[in-house]
Design a protein around this nucleic acid. Structure first.
Lengths: 209, 209
DNA sequence: ATTTTCGGTTAGTGTTCACTAACTCGATTC
DNA sequence: GAATCGAGTTAGTGAACACTAACCGAAAAT
């Protein structure tokens, strides 16, 4: 998951002490383990005890890092949507034209979906489990991410209505986010390098068709 | 529990009596309501009491129709995967050539995804919650459905490896099944007729690119 | 007309689980 | 070196919930 988006949950000023660093590490470990477990068994199928055990502490120790189970989910989803938006903006800033921009957006999203498959699976499935406040925040970040795609698409296809472009972007996300799903099914897949190319090709073709 | 893999949903011999018909109706009502609720709040977020209330009875009456909560989910997912497979076979039997077959498969899947959005959402998300026996059965049905797509694609693109075609089919399902997801987000969408055309176009373009 | 069947009811029961309480002990601070 | 802090521990606690028990009354079977 990396990035630790902005301020979010890590203390405003992480004290540079030994204990402070270990605490930050453990927090990160919990988030990684939680993403994997939530992706595998669903948010409701994972207990606080499971989260602790997964990082070598037991049960209530998790409350030293998060105010509750839903806060863990919130941190994962908020981090993911923030990373996505940040990445899109970084990518767009460097693109010389709209065609290159779309190519880069697709490539970035493919990288994210393959690299953070657990997080993607959780984001797709457990949005409704969030507390209303955080859910609204995550939705807002996601909406802004989509708008970056729509703006880019609008440059390439000014003939199409914005609602259609938005709809197409969502469909493309469904396509690109399919790997975390099918990764769970035990079917054989092409090699990782090959997958990347296929996904990029399919996404481009579907969006520009 | 459950462990009624085969005959499952419709009774072996639906007795033509009054009570028998009412029972079948109620069973169907529970399944419909359950699909909607599971799609909205997730399998674990719905109680047996909720299921009863949704059809006007209360709580334990559901056990007169299903052996337990997981049996309700099993009936939904088994019914869905069976409908999909049956539909694909019906459609393929009538197609004059591979191109028409793929067009029909896509159209059929779009219809299903738009018509049974709740079921699709549940199938995507709650497969892991099934008891192992039923999960295996559903997986098997899904696999056979995918194979229909792969066989059709293989006729059209004999140059491509089967693993690639299978992977592309999965990605296309992600694209086509995105509407039940985005239906939940409150973004404005194109009219229903328009959606159909766009999805078909995108799916075709991505598969054949 | 009598008996049986069965879909419904309300009232438990046992378990699981998020979260809290009280305490421990090494690292940090003074 | 003494005082404090805070991340960890184990032992509850209370609520939610899947499922069972016991009963009821109308439809179905005899």
């Amino acid at each position: 998951m990396a990035s630790t988006p902005a301020q979010a949950q890590t203390a405003l000023q992480p004290p540079l002490t030994e204990r402070g660093r270990q605490k930050a590490d453990r927090r990160e470990a919990i988030l990684t383990a939680a993403a994997r477990l939530f992706a595998e068994r669903g948010y409701a199928g994972v207990t606080i005890e499971d989260l602790g055990t997964a990082v070598g502490v037991s049960g209530p120790a998790v409350y030293r890092h998060f105010t509750g189970k839903s806060a863990v989910l919130a941190a994962i989803l908020e981090g993911a949507s923030r990373s996505l938006l940040d990445g899109a903006e970084r990518v767009l800033a460097e693109a010389p034209d709209a065609a290159a921009a779309l190519r880069s957006l697709i490539r970035f999203h493919v990288d994210f979906a393959l690299g953070e498959a657990d997080v993607i699976a959780v984001q797709d499935r457990e949005l409704e489990q969030l507390d209303p406040g955080v859910r609204h925040e995550v939705r807002s970040l996601q909406r802004r991410y989509v708008e970056r795609w729509v703006d880019t698409l609008a440059e390439l296809r000014p003939d199409r209505a914005e609602v259609e472009l938005r709809f197409r972007a969502h469909a493309a996300f469904g396509l690109l986010n399919s790997t975390p799903h099918s990764a769970r099914t035990p079917g054989r897949r092409p090699a990782d390098g090959t997958i990347r190319g296929i996904l990029e090709e399919m996404a481009w073709a579907s969006l520009m068709s």
